[in-house]
Design a protein around this nucleic acid. Structure first.
Lengths: 220, 220
DNA sequence: GCATATTTGTCCGTATGTATA
DNA sequence: CTATACATACGGACAAATATG
């Protein structure tokens, strides 16, 4: 279940994992060009395999290719953020609304919440952010669809890059841990319709906050 | 808007387009291995670029890589079909339920329906199939989310491969043209909740039919 | 069970075109 | 406008894994 080290994956996928890590830790910033030659020698792989890794991340949405110019870390725009939240609304709310009571994913959501609360007290905001994303991934897995799960994970990764460039995880995550807690209680009680409604308001508020932070600093 | 000829796309993406075409026309059958050397010389590209094209199709879900063995046309399984329909239920129904009245995509849906009805009279079942998929893509675009659109297209492509291997497009599509017509009328009248309900029953019936056809022939 | 042929995985060198200083 | 840097694409090479006789 790890992803930076070698298993049955080939080199390109492992390299893609390394790049993913660099993106969410902020080691690579939006707009930055990823030069083939430089990165290849840095990561000690050939340019060919690096290009294959690029293909993976490009289709995941975290990198962008400009023809004959190279690949760049995708810079989040207002419209892309709006899009990500539209996706979240359809998928997360849909998954919650149709969720079965006592679904195992509810326990995963609970576990993620507890991790978030613990990290909040240290405080370790990167971990809070990770736990929060795992919480929402758990919500999606209520739909029991592997395809939805991986797609959703890609979309969330995009949002995370935007968070990094806002470098204000605390401000963005803190207000929501409590609300997610309430949502989880509703799930545990099998009150799915109410949970779906709660999630809707969560997403609306979160979207507003992200857009506000976004507009406050970097433009585009 | 074409996709087999060259635009601003690079070679690997164009090759991916060619392979996509081969897959939905049945020129490549599920389970078949796509040999790097053979395909590269056939398509007159280098093995490296072919491998990049593979990455794209693998991520789209139509091809599958088995480490150190090569890439194969993904063979649809019962669980993958179930998954595809779970995805469709969440996304299509979600998009329809929240759709705005008079949304431009409704006209697209109408146009696709008319194309399907025309092709049905020729009869040209491949075109009926294409029009049907465009109809459902139009439903998804009611959500105004580019990311949902392309994801959904990939998922539908998978289903289409399953259809090809069932080589019974007539039997699978014909009963539904009329039902989609009714659905479109509801959309045009702004009765989104009823349309969403209609779509739910459509998907349930379609899923049953596909699974039945599937179980009747090829195993796995 | 073994030796051999085939194929993937990965790398390198290089030619060509495109964008930028 | 020339020069330079870089992405794009190709072909060949070789080790390692896999399939075949």
């Amino acid at each position: 279940m790890t992803d930076t080290e070698g298993d049955g994956l080939d080199l390109a996928e492992r390299i893609a994992g390394v790049l993913r890590e660099r993106l969410i830790t902020g080691a690579a910033v939006p707009g930055e060009q990823l030069s083939e030659a430089a990165l290849a020698s840095d990561l000690e792989v050939s340019r060919n395999t690096l290009r294959e890794a690029f293909r993976i991340l490009i289709h995941e949405g975290t990198l962008e290719r400009i023809p004959n110019r190279g690949v760049f870390v995708r810079v989040p725009s207002v419209s892309s953020i709006l899009d990500v939240f539209r996706v979240r609304r359809v998928i997360e709310v849909g998954a919650v609304r149709e969720a079965l009571p006592k679904h195992p994913a509810i326990a995963d959501a609970r576990a993620a919440i507890e991790r978030a609360k613990q990290a909040q007290e240290i405080p370790e905001w990167t971990i809070v952010g990770t736990a929060n994303m795992e919480f929402h991934s758990a919500l999606v897995s209520l739909a029991d669809s592997p395809r939805l799960n991986i797609f959703f994970q890609n979309v969330l990764a995009e949002l995370r890059i935007a968070f990094v460039s806002l470098h204000s995880a605390e401000h963005l995550h803190a207000p929501f841990v409590e609300q997610n807690e309430e949502l989880t209680v509703l799930l545990e009680q099998g009150r799915m319709t109410e949970a779906a409604a709660e999630l809707e308001t969560y997403l609306a508020r979160s979207e507003r906050l992200v857009l506000a932070s976004f507009g406050r600093m970097g433009q585009s």
